[in-house]
Amino acid sequence: MGKRLLGRGFFARNVVEVARDLIGATLLVDGVGGMIVETEAYDREDPASHSYSGPTARNRVMFGEPGHAYIYRSYGIHWCVNFVCRSGVGDGLATGAAVLIRAIEPTQGIAAMVERRGLSNPLQLCAGPGRVCQALGLSIAHNGLPLDEPPFLLLGADAPQPIASGPRIGISKGVETPWRFGLRGSRYLSKRFASVPVRAS
């Protein structure tokens, strides 16, 4: 495909930087997926983060090595996939941080996504974290798996992307923290951004 493979070293950085840099990257699970167009960052001293109160049986993957999938069920209904990173706390080497994948633009394995989601509108296939997991066939069975090994394939963006940012969605704490990032102008976002783009990296 001509893109660089994103190894575990890519994720061993500040979670906010990783969340930005994932915009435009390609995420495939067993060959099904597309371009990441929306992410959210969660840090271990962030009251909205699962890691805020320390390690538990549910969030233990967040306190492991960067570059692994952290998957949890939201509201007892939807699976959500996160990529474990380094925290921005202190010396930047602490764990307990992750990037939530909120939306992708579907490009490969669309027939499989349509079957799994039960709809054919490409704009709705992966617009939201629960939809992403359903379309890609992700579940708790993938929790803790390394992102640089099958069934995952992560490839860096072909070129710098224009990025927008704003407050995260669907949380009750840390609501003003502008750690939601997206591809400016994308039709595949879970929700439009009200803010102006923060950079064209």
Rank of each mutant, 00 (worst) to 15 (best):
R86E: 12
V198G: 15
A159M: 06
Y75K: 07
D46H: 08
V15Q: 09
S51M: 12
C80T: 07
K173H: 14
L100T: 01
Y42S: 03
A25G: 01
I36L: 15
A135M: 08
A135T: 11
E105H: 04
G31F: 12
I23D: 07
V18T: 12
E176Y: 10
I23F: 10
V196D: 14
L145W: 10
E149F: 11
P151D: 03
I171Q: 11
G31T: 06
R117P: 04
P146A: 11
H50D: 05
D30E: 15
I77N: 03
T95R: 15
R60M: 10
N59M: 05
G7S: 13
G137H: 05
G31K: 07
K3F: 01
V84L: 11
I71R: 00
C85T: 15
Y42M: 08
L189I: 02
S139H: 05
A112R: 15
I140A: 15
V84Q: 05
M113K: 09
A12D: 15
A127M: 05
M1C: 03
L136I: 09
K173I: 07
P106C: 12
G7Q: 09
L5P: 01
D148S: 06
V61A: 06
G182M: 03
S195D: 14
G156Q: 00
V61R: 03
P197E: 04
T26D: 02
V37A: 05
E17M: 09
V37E: 02
V16G: 02
V37H: 03
I110C: 01
R58V: 13
S190K: 05
R131S: 06
Y72D: 03
L153V: 14
P146D: 07
G109C: 12
S49L: 08
G9Y: 07
V114Y: 03
L153S: 12
G76F: 02
Y188P: 00
L145Y: 07
N121T: 13
P162V: 15
L6P: 02
G54A: 04
R60D: 13
I163P: 05
G130T: 13
R8L: 11
G33D: 12
M113W: 11
V37D: 00
M1K: 01
Q161L: 08
P167V: 12
L5S: 09
A41G: 13
F10S: 01
E149I: 07
T39A: 07
A41P: 06
A135Y: 06
A164K: 07
A135V: 09
V61H: 06
L28G: 01
